[in-house]
Nucleic acid binder design. Structure first.
Lengths: 136, 136
DNA sequence: TTGCCACTCATACTAAAGTACCAAAAACAC
DNA sequence: GTGTTTTTGGTACTTTAGTATGAGTGGCAA
């Protein structure tokens, strides 16, 4: 957010500078008004691409629908397990990284499968990504 | 590709029109050179965003690294199985949609796990997506 | 403080997944 | 056409995943 504000401020400054440049151009006999306009076009074209790229990354990679997670009644611990599942870990491995027993993981997984209306963990991963409750 | 050419042609025409406008502005006493520049800025900003969006869609959704698939020695049939796995189907279900026996699917999956250096199908899915041999 | 809920864990079971090894038909290259 | 790879499939086995059920703990709200 801070970065966005900064970028837009810079843009406005650039625009003002160009206005000033256009004044000089006018005073000095309007030698290269085309170059000024062309420059503005190129600069804003590139800035447009840059900003879009940034915002798309945020949307597609970071966007998690917390609303949906709540709707499905998925608890904090269950969600942690879901994340580990999507990384391809086994129940035993998940148990180790979360300092729990494998039984506990199995319980969480079983609950997750019900809440995500899935028969297998692979299907749960797919569904979770479709629902944007896991990063794609 | 045709669309891209069309868009860029339109852009050049727009730029030329703006050059013409700037001439008129100059002749008529340079009333609103700022407006002209501002317009160019906004137009090219939006066009930049638009074009970027189009190209990103193609890149992120359609891009499959066939080179990599060959490198890993994954055969056609094996790849078909991999796709089904990533959709969350069981071996039995995959066998049904591909009209094969479950034994055959197991063989393919086992080979896939070796080729993708994975211990489980969930890990294989993750790896395949990382390597861009499966759509994200 | 009582009751609900999330979290934890266990046992016992069934169902999938995955391994190892073998083998035969089909496709493909040389 | 012969050799190689792909594809198919089987048996027998081990491992992992998932279900069902019960139960204890701690937090939190009415």
């Amino acid at each position: 957010m801070k970065k966005t504000v900064f970028v837009f401020s810079a843009l406005i400054v650039a625009l003002l500078l160009l206005f000033k440049l256009s004044e000089y151009t006018y005073l000095s006999g309007n030698i290269s008004i085309e170059i000024a306009i062309g420059t503005v076009a190129i600069v804003f074209f590139i800035v447009g691409i840059y900003i879009n790229k940034k915002s798309l990354k945020k949307e597609k990679i970071d966007f998690i629908d917390h609303q949906k997670i709540e709707e499905l009644g998925i608890s904090k611990r269950e969600y942690e397990v879901l994340v580990q599942i999507s990384k391809g870990f086994s129940n035993k491995e998940i148990a180790d990284v979360l300092f729990l027993s494998e039984s506990t993981i199995k319980t969480h997984v079983s609950n997750l499968l019900v809440k995500l209306d899935s028969k297998r963990r692979t299907q749960a991963i797919q569904k979770a990504k479709d629902l944007h409750i896991l990063p794609v």
